[in-house]
Simulated assay, not measured.
Amino acid sequence: MPTIEILSPAMTVPARRAVSVRLTRFLAARGVAPGHVVVHFTPSEPNTLFSGGVPVAALSPADAGEGLRHARVTVCVGADRDEAFRSELAGEIAAALGLTERTPFLYIEFRPTDPSHVYLADQGRLRPADTPRRNQP
């Protein structure tokens, strides 16, 4: 049920896929079913993300080179996940996005979410994420 929403400058499909696969593998290694990992990318339009009244795009020099320019990330994870898990996941997100010493802005916010408050499609019906899947016919 982990959901990771990434708002950043547009990324290519291969780059988005690489980030998604890396984060899915990281979470799967910690007991999360790969099919429960959702990664959503939204390209940020110029001058729509500000920090301290300044567009974050202006904080990144034009010659910043490779790596992450800026991003805002919102992560919904089970309320039972501890600080160590969140810290490791934050580090993995930063690495997957290409954080460098020249990245001027990366904001990662965790929203602990009770799985009973998340609904998933299951054979044409919705079920809370904390209930088992229906039996396959």
Rank of each mutant, 00 (worst) to 15 (best):
P112S: 12
A33R: 15
A18M: 13
S8W: 00
A94L: 08
F50N: 12
A18I: 07
P43W: 10
H70T: 05
T42N: 12
T48H: 08
S44P: 02
G78W: 02
F50S: 13
A84L: 05
L120T: 03
V32T: 15
S8G: 02
R125P: 02
A71R: 11
I6L: 13
P14A: 02
R133V: 05
T24G: 04
P2D: 06
D122F: 14
A33F: 07
G31I: 05
R133N: 10
D63M: 06
L106N: 00
N135A: 13
A71T: 12
R127M: 05
A90T: 09
V32S: 09
P132T: 14
S44G: 14
A71L: 13
D122E: 08
R22Y: 05
H40D: 01
Y107H: 08
G35S: 04
D63Y: 06
P9R: 14
A71H: 10
Q123N: 07
L99I: 11
F110N: 04
S51Y: 10
T113S: 11
V19I: 15
R30I: 05
P2N: 05
E66K: 15
T3V: 14
D82G: 12
A15L: 07
P137M: 02
A96F: 00
E92N: 06
L23G: 00
Q136D: 07
F50L: 12
F50M: 13
R102N: 01
T24C: 07
L7Q: 08
F41Y: 15
V32H: 07
R17A: 10
D114C: 08
Y107C: 12
G53Y: 05
L120E: 10
G124M: 02
P43N: 05
C76T: 02
H40F: 08
L7N: 09
E83N: 04
T100Q: 06
T131L: 04
Q136T: 13
M1E: 02
N135G: 05
D82I: 06
S44Y: 04
P43I: 03
E83H: 14
L59M: 15
R16L: 01
L120D: 02
P34R: 03
V37S: 00
G53E: 08
I93R: 14
G91W: 09
T131A: 04
R69P: 01
F85C: 06
F110Y: 12
A10W: 14
A129M: 07
L27R: 09
G35V: 05
R102P: 00
H40Y: 08
F105A: 00
A10I: 10
A57N: 11
A79G: 05
V13C: 06
L23N: 00
S60M: 06
L106F: 04
A79V: 13
P128S: 04
Y107K: 11
H117F: 07
V39H: 03
